[in-house]
Design a protein around this nucleic acid. Structure first.
Lengths: 233, 233
DNA sequence: GCATAACATCATCAATTGACGACAAAGGTA
DNA sequence: TACCTTTGTCGTCAATTGATGATGTTATGC
């Protein structure tokens, strides 16, 4: 196109100003690492909205580059998807959560509300949830075991801490312990799904919902354990 | 290409012979209504597994018919998808649930466990969940308002019945009431998602999980209401 | 039998889509 | 300036995909 080639030529003549200008909208020439990072960032948003079947041409449009250029950074679309998943899905879990959840100088109700407020804000975002669901629905096994492992460890810690503060003894069945913790964890997760997927309106603010759910979990904790152990006898 | 046209011709012959051979696999000639029902049934399974972007040719293969025949029953793929959604997603809610949930001759714990056991078995199946999630993720607005309306009414009934049995007064805020009921409803729903989507292993049987979750909800009901009303003062 | 309508397939089109070779432009270096 | 590496685009291929006209095939009424 004439307009585009004119713009490029002009950019070559006026060095400093045009470079800064094109850097802002990623329209100009970029070093390898920077361009790749920009593609990954855009691709995350793109696939989260359009699904993993979104087309490379439209992604290239969103990036403001030609479709061919995508293949200079990623050999195939599959590789791009794998990289997005690795960075944006697996890379958001914080190690500090484990430490904070086990800080017994604070009441467990405070620890849980703080954790789940942070979890909702940083992990259960629209972008993360939609990508995760698209990946889970597709047969492509994008290593969900890693996430399962992390969440399982979180559930273990939560149950141990609550049981300790309430002086309740946990059953031996580890699957049962996890299922009890899922009562709270799943409730929070489903709230996020509702909010970001079903476009539900008229929803209370996050911190209010978390406070209610944590309170209910702690109040029902001992009776829930009883329901399980009573059944066995 | 020669190879391709040969393959197609051979496939046609094989189809013809096998059709005449067995009528049990819907391979033969069928009246309009029967064929349409069979297509819808197969399409539900097909799109639930492969997503709404699944191709009409593969669906036709699953049906054991030619791709062209699909368009004798549905003008476009969109129409087929809409019909699947209408019949398999919207058509599974039972009116009897409302009556049973309000039958005060039985304790509310029994009513809730019975309802959610039935809900899990008949509605939150793998097929239903995957289709519903695919539809929710796609921008295609497949009338989620209808489902939202039904679920909202369910939540209203549940909260009213529990509050009545426990002698607790509900707050005025309808959004808050719904959010409290979602604590249980979302927890059960997320259990189904885990089971059918994440292929989670080592999960307790459904009735045990429902019993635990209902028990916890009832035990934490009053403290949850307090958490809400206390905050307002 | 035979006509007719319904059932079903074949062959194909036009648009889409992942992928890639050829080529141009920009920036650094001697 | 001449040269080379890196960045970027154009044009295109082969396979896929939704859709449709032309054609074959079977049941049913007369």
């Amino acid at each position: 196109m004439k307009a585009k080639s004119d713009k490029l030529r002009e950019a070559g003549r006026v060095n400093a100003t045009s470079r800064q200008g094109s850097n802002a909208d990623k329209g100009g020439r970029l070093p390898h690492a920077e361009r790749k990072a920009h593609i990954l960032e855009t691709a995350t948003e793109f696939f989260a909205e359009n699904g993993l079947t979104g087309q490379t041409r439209r992604l290239a449009d969103e990036c403001g580059i030609s479709q061919r250029l995508l293949y200079r950074f990623f050999p195939t679309k599959e590789d791009l998807l794998a990289e997005v998943y690795r960075q944006e899905i697996l890379g958001v879990f914080k190690a500090v959560w484990f430490a904070d959840l086990q800080d017994r100088s604070k009441p467990v109700e405070q620890r849980l509300t703080q954790f789940y407020n942070d979890y909702l804000r940083t992990t259960l975002t629209r972008k993360w949830l939609r990508l995760f669901l698209y990946a889970s629905l597709s047969e492509a096994t994008m290593a969900p075991d890693y996430i399962a492992s992390i969440v399982t460890q979180l559930l273990d810690v939560i149950m141990r801490e609550v049981a300790h503060e309430q002086g309740v003894e946990l059953p031996d069945d580890r699957a049962a312990i996890h299922e009890m913790a899922w009562t709270l964890h799943g409730s929070v997760s489903h709230y996020a799904i509702r909010r970001h997927l079903y476009q539900a309106s008229n929803i209370l603010p996050e911190d209010r919902v978390v406070a209610m759910q944590v309170r209910m979990f702690l109040s029902g904790f001992s009776p829930m354990i009883s329901e399980y152990t009573d059944y066995l006898s």
